[in-house]
Every structure is written in structure tokens, then in C-alpha cells.
């Protein structure tokens, strides 16, 4: 249903044939001007500023010379940036997939009209009310081999139990995924649950009459109906993947070594700690370009092509 309204709004604004009288739109347009200006000056302006700086040799203070692609050449041979980029992919795929699957299962589970639904909903949504910093510190303690889970299980008598992912270079990135899913699954659940509540009960009755098993009903009938909710959840999760910074700083500090570095941390460290504005902005620009490359086909498919078809 949400798709229908969104599309109607989109076409209503864009189709010249259906343009409303100027007088009616004027107050609304005036009200939007400050926001539009802020978006243009602050967001777009800062973006252009960042891109411009990435072609300079700025260090502590911005400088306006032009060194071509030198910073980008440095960037692609920089171990730490390469690892950061790989980590974003690993974290992004696992985190989004994990949140969606777990969130969907939780939503279906709560949708069974279980007793104490309100309590369950609160419990599952609770992690989301905590900041990434708190999440990171809590999980750091919990996963620390000398303090948390490993020690607990060993103290219970299983002296061979080992769970040292947090201090293991190969596995540390997955501890971030675990903490991230713990944090984000509840929100996904809330969004999908809202969608589930909008699904017509008659569909369920009809499926029962036809002898469709429950798992098939959810997978083939409900899930496609939930598409807009899934898209919303995915976009929200994707945003937290791109700006992932505080969780890493609080939980691993990018270590062990450089095993859990992420691009946002690379940018922050180079802008402020290492007095290397140019390299930091070059990394930021590459992140921006990547995001644009990923979402451009989606925007095209959703807004440009669908309009052309009509």
C-alpha cells in the first residue's frame, strides 16, 4: 500500500499535466525554501568542498593547490584503506542479512499473538535504544577472553572452551557483526511487525483452506507483501553500515592490528589525528562515489524507468 501512495505522490509532483494552480502551492513552496537552502548549502556545498579538497595537498589546514589524483594513488596502495573497504563489504552483507532474517523471524514469532507480546516487543527493541558506544563497550567486556563469556564458561568447568574472536585478527570483524545485529534486529522486527499487522487475515484463511503450510504462506505470500517494509529496513541498515564508526571505536579501536578498521574511521583519523585533510577527504569522496554507484541503479529503476513505462 505504501508503494502506491509514494508513487502517486511522485508522479503528482513531476507530471506537468496535473500541475496545481500556482497560488495553492506557493505557501508550501515558501515553507520549503529554508530547508532547500540548507540542503543545498550545507549538504551539497560540503560535499563539493570535500571533493575539491581531495585534489589538494592539504595537511592540517585546507590549501587550494591542485595535485591531481595523487591522493587517490596513495589511497589505493594504503593497506589500511583496502582492509577498511573489505570490512565494509563483509560487515554490510552479514549485518543487513542477519538483521533482516532475525528481525523477520522475531516479527513472525510475535505475530502469533503470543501472551505478553508487549513485553517481548520491548525486550527485542530495547538494544536499539542504546547508542553504538554503549553497545560496543558492553560487547567488548562480554567477549573479552579474560573477563567475559570465555572466562564464565571456563569457570563452570569447561576448561578447554575458547572464544577469543575479539582478540583474533581473522575473526574480530565478526564480533562487530554480532554486536551490530544485536543492536539492529529489534528495529527491523518493529518495522516488519507493523507490515505484518497490515496483511489481510483473509489471506491466511484462504491459504489454510488451500492447505498451504505456514512456512510457505510466510515465504511466498507475506514476504512479497512486505516488500516496502523490507526496503525501508534495508535502507536504514545500509545507512548505519556506511557511517559505522562509533561501534568500532568503542569495541575494538580498529584492532587487533588493523583488522577491524572501517572507512569512516580512516577518514576521521586522517582529518583530525594525522593532520592529513587531503587523504581523509579523498577517502570520503571514494565512499560517496561508491554509495552513489550502488544506489543509482535503484533510483533509476524506481523513479526514472517506472515513470517512462507509464
Amino acid at each position: 500500500m505504501a508503494t502506491v501512495t509514494v508513487r502517486a505522490a511522485a508522479t503528482g509532483a513531476a507530471a506537468p499535466a496535473a500541475r496545481p494552480r500556482i497560488g495553492r502551492g506557493l505557501p508550501a513552496a515558501l515553507a520549503l525554501v529554508p530547508t532547500a537552502l540548507i540542503v543545498l548549502v550545507v549538504y551539497v556545498g560540503c560535499m563539493l568542498w570535500t571533493v575539491r579538497l581531495s585534489f589538494t595537498s592539504s595537511t592540517l589546514l585546507p590549501k587550494f593547490d591542485f595535485v591531481g589524483l595523487a591522493q587517490y594513488e596513495r589511497l589505493i596502495v594504503n593497506d589500511r584503506f583496502v582492509v577498511s573497504a573489505q570490512n565494509t563489504v563483509i560487515f554490510g552483507v552479514l549485518f543487513i542479512a542477519g538483521c533482516l532474517v532475525l528481525g523477520f523471524l522475531l516479527a513472525v514469532f510475535i505475530d502469533q499473538r503470543v501472551r505478553g507480546e508487549g513485553a517481548f516487543r520491548t525486550v527485542f527493541l530495547f538494544p536499539y535504544s542504546m547508542s553504538f558506544v554503549v553497545t560496543g563497550v558492553a560487547w567488548q567486556w562480554f567477549l573479552n577472553p579474560g573477563l567475559g563469556l570465555e572466562k564464565l564458561v571456563r569457570d563452570m568447568g569447561f576448561s578447554n572452551f575458547t572464544f577469543d574472536w575479539l582478540v583474533n585478527q581473522e575473526m574480530a570483524i565478526y564480533t562487530l557483526v554480532i554486536a551490530g545485529i544485536w543492536h539492529g534486529a529489534g528495529l527491523t522486527m518493529a518495522i516488519l511487525l507493523a507490515g505484518l499487522r497490515g496483511v489481510d487475515e483473509d489471506l491466511w484463511k484462504a491459504a489454510r483452506v488451500d492447505g498451504v503450510p505456514p512456512w510457505r504462506y510466510y515465504l511466498s505470500i507475506v514476504l512479497p507483501l512486505l516488500r516496502p517494509m523490507v526496503v525501508t529496513a534495508t535502507v536504514l541498515l545500509a545507512i548505519s553500515v556506511v557511517k559505522l564508526y562509533d561501534l568500532v571505536v568503542a569495541m575494538t579501536g580498529g584492532g587487533p592490528g588493523i583488522a577491524t578498521e572501517v572507512p569512516a574511521k580512516f577518514v576521521m583519523d586522517h582529518l583530525f589525528e594525522r593532520n592529513n585533510i587531503a587523504l581523509g577527504t579523498a577517502a570520503a569522496t571514494l565512499m560517496l562515489v561508491t554509495v552513489v554507484i550502488i544506489i543509482a541503479p535503484w533510483i533509476y529503476a524506481r523513479y526514472v524507468r517506472s515513470k517512462g513505462r507509464r
Binding site: 567488548q140 573479552n144 577472553p145 579474560g146 573477563l147 577469543d164 575479539l166 582478540v167 575494538t252 579501536g253 584492532g255 587487533p256
Partner: peptide
């Protein structure tokens, strides 16, 4: 080799 396993971080 002289550092304990809990050192990272």
C-alpha cells in the same frame, strides 16, 4: 610471545 592473550584493545 611475552604478552598475554588479553592484551589487544
Amino acid at each position: 610471545g611475552l604478552v598475554d592473550p588479553g592484551s589487544p584493545g
